[in-house]
Design a protein around this nucleic acid. Structure first.
Lengths: 254, 254
DNA sequence: ATCTATTTGTACGTATGTATT
DNA sequence: AAATACATACGTACAAATAGA
C-alpha cells in the first residue's frame, strides 16, 4: 500500500505556488519516488501546470525550504527528492519554539524522562567503534575547567556527548528529540551566560557519570545505564537550576 | 538582550533567494520584530537588495513555507511576521519522519515516558472549563464500539483526548511532543488498518482510565494522575502490540 | 583546456487579482 | 461604486553553472 498522505481539507485559499507544491508532493508519493529520484524540469512543469516559470520556481522554493528537494543546475541537473535532514528538521522545529519562551526547566522535564530511557536501550547495542568515538570525545573536556570560558566549552562538549549518544539510538524519534534538546541547551550556553562558574565537584561528578555510563553500555548492563543516566540528569539539572526560569529564543534555519 | 541567532557557518553555497531569506530573518531578529509586525513591501526589498521581483518573491515563499511570515494582498497588505503555528511545525516535522520508518513501538517508548509526566504536572492545574471540555469530548466515544469502523473512530477520538490534554501543558515542549505523537498514531489509524477488532474489555479499561485521570487532575492528586496514565499507556500499548513493527509513512504540509 | 548543450538562476516589464477605503 | 495599494502571475531575454565531448 502506498504511503499515507494527509492534507487538511485541501483549502482553496492557497496561492498558486503553494497549490503546485502540494500537487507535486502528492505526485511524488503516488509515484512512490524516494530520495535521489528526479523531478520533472522547470519546462516540463510549466507546461504540465500551464503556469509561468516564476510560479513554478516559487513552488520549488517552497519544497526546498521544507527540505524535501534539492536542485542542481547544469546538464543532468534539476530537482531531486531529498530526504529531510535532521539538521533541517531541527532548524524548522527550532523556529517554532522561538516564539514559545522555553525554560531550562521545560527542557529538563523531558530530558529526565527520556535520557535514561535512551541509555537503557543503548546498553549492549553500541558497537566498539562508536564507543571509542564517545570515549575519544570525552577527551576534549578531560582537564578540569579553570576559566569561565573553559567551563563554557566543556559544557557544550558535554552536551555534544548526548547528541552523539542520540545518534546511536535505534528509535529515530527518541534520538531526534534528545538531540534537539541538546542543541537547544547548547544554544543557550552559547548566546547567554547560562553556565555556572567553574565547579570542580560538578565537573568530576559529570565525567564520572559519563565514564560509568559508557562502561554500562559496553557491558550491556541495562539497569546500570539507566540509573547512571538518571543520576547524571539530576546533577545536570541542579547545575543549571541556579538560572531559574531562564528563557531561550532561537531562530535558525539550516 | 536581543534573541540569539545561529547560522551554521553562513555557507556561500546558498542561492540568492535563500540568502535573501536568511538576511531578512536576521533583520527581523535585529529589529526585534515580533508576530504581526510588518515587513517591507516587495518594491522596498527589491531596491534594498538590488534584486528583481522574482528573486524577492522566491525568498518570501521560503519564509512562508517555514511558517515565519504571512502575506496578504490589497491595500495595507504585505508580508507580516507570523508565529509558527503548531500545526505547521507538526507538518514540517512529520516530513522528516516520513523517511524514517517509525514503528508503533518507537512512539510508545516515548509515550510511556512522557504521558505520565504530563498527567502529573497537570494535576490541579487544569481549570474547570477545560475539564468540562475533556469530559465532553469523552462523550463522543461513550458507547461501546460495535463495528470495525466504530472502533476506528473511537480510537482516533481517544487519541484526540491526549492532544487536548497536551494543549493544557504549561511546558510547550512537552505539550508539542505529546501532541505530535498522538497525531502520528492517528494517521496510522486512518491510513492503515492499525486498530484492533472491537474489544470491549480494552474499551472499558481505557474509558475507566480516562475518567480516573480527569478525577485525579481535578483533585490535584499528582501521584494518582501519573499512575493512572502509566497504566493507560500499558493498556494502549498492548492494544497495538499485535501489530508488531508496523511502519508508518507520513507526508504532510499544513 | 575548450567548447557545447542542458538546465537552473536572475532580471524586468506588463497585466491581472484582491482587499481596503 | 470607484479608486487605490498592494501582491500575484506571466513571458521573455539573458546569465550562470555543470557535465560531457
Amino acid at each position: 500500500m502506498p504511503p499515507a498522505i494527509t492534507r487538511s481539507t485541501r483549502e482553496t485559499r492557497l496561492s498558486r505556488p503553494q497549490r503546485v507544491a502540494e500537487e507535486i508532493k502528492d505526485w511524488v508519493v503516488e509515484q512512490g519516488l524516494s530520495a535521489g529520484d528526479r523531478l520533472p524540469g522547470e519546462a516540463a512543469l510549466m507546461s504540465r501546470f500551464g503556469m509561468a516559470k516564476g510560479t513554478i520556481r516559487e513552488a520549488m522554493r517552497i519544497l526546498e525550504a521544507q527540505g524535501l528537494i534539492r536542485t542542481r543546475t547544469g546538464p543532468g541537473g534539476g530537482s531531486f527528492v531529498h530526504e529531510v535532514s535532521s539538521k533541517r528538521a531541527k532548524a524548522l522545529l527550532g523556529n517554532y519554539f522561538y516564539f514559545k519562551n522555553l525554560t531550562i526547566a521545560d527542557i529538563y522535564q523531558l530530558r529526565r524522562a527520556l535520557e535514561p530511557e535512551l541509555a537503557a536501550t543503548l546498553a549492549g547495542k553500541v558497537d566498539a567503534k562508536a564507543l571509542r568515538a564517545l570515549a575519544g570525545h570525552m577527551e576534549s573536556y578531560a582537564a578540569p575547567p579553570e576559566t569561565l570560558e573553559e567551563e563554557r566549552l566543556h559544557h557544550i562538549a558535554s552536551l555534544k556527548f548526548h547528541s552523539l549518544l542520540a545518534e546511536q539510538a535505534s528509535n529515530p524519534l527518541l534520538g531526534f528529540v534528545i538531540d534537539f534538546m541538546a542543541e537547544l541547551l547548547s544554544d543557550i550556553t552559547v548566546y547567554r551566560r547560562l553556565y555556572a562558574p567553574p565547579n570542580l565537584e560538578l565537573w568530576s561528578a559529570g565525567r564520572d557519570h559519563q565514564h560509568r555510563l559508557l562502561a554500562a553500555i559496553r557491558d550491556g548492563d541495562t539497569d546500570a545505564a539507566r540509573a547512571v543516566m538518571a543520576d547524571h540528569m539530576e546533577v545536570a539539572l541542579s547545575h543549571m537550576q541556579g538560572q531559574e526560569a531562564e528563557r531561550m529564543r532561537r531562530f535558525i534555519s539550516e
